[in-house]
Amino acid sequence: MPIEALLFVLLVVLALAIAHMRDLFAAAMLFSIFSLLSAGMFTLMDAVDVAFTEAAVGAGISTVLILGTLALTSNEERNGPFRLTPLLVCLGLGATLIYGTRDLPVYGDPGAVVHHHVAPEYIEGSHNIHIPNVVTTVLASYRGYDTFGETTVVFTAGLGVLLLLGGAARRRDPEEEAAPQATSEVTS
């Protein structure tokens, strides 16, 4: 528990530093650190899959996307006039979210509603099917068709990307071969 508290303090410090930062490249780097920090916190709270998504999307791809945007625009944030509306919207949203957490069950509470809906049935069923991992049972047996559909979607997407990239490479090659021939004919 003291580790989580310290990490949370670090998160708050980092967020204030990002808000204060005028150099946008530094802010992008700090956002990457912010994501890694929250991923570490999620892992400590046993939400391993959420943590991994946060690390891959937050620290990985969105840093690259922000840097790609910075390469097209300016690297420095201009100081505009102070606007009250965004601050009020942010504070209102934050207050709403904090109000929403009042209805959540206590962290790690075994009597919470989500643990009594279908989870006990899955855990018992997993024992009957003789698959040692409950997550594997849910993904491969209870939700087999769902997993099959997801795999088909991912496979189709990968195939599409490969076809697009492969087609571009094949189309470029003859042009590059044709170009030196044309110049050599002119010189001879």
Binding site: L36, A39, F52, A59, G60, T63, V64, L67, A71
Partner: peptide, 15 residues
């Protein structure tokens, strides 16, 4: 995580 960190830093440096 180590693998992802490595790839991320390479991408940032390339940028």
């Amino acid at each position: 995580y180590a693998l992802m960190n490595f790839i991320g830093v390479i991408a940032v440096l390339k940028f």
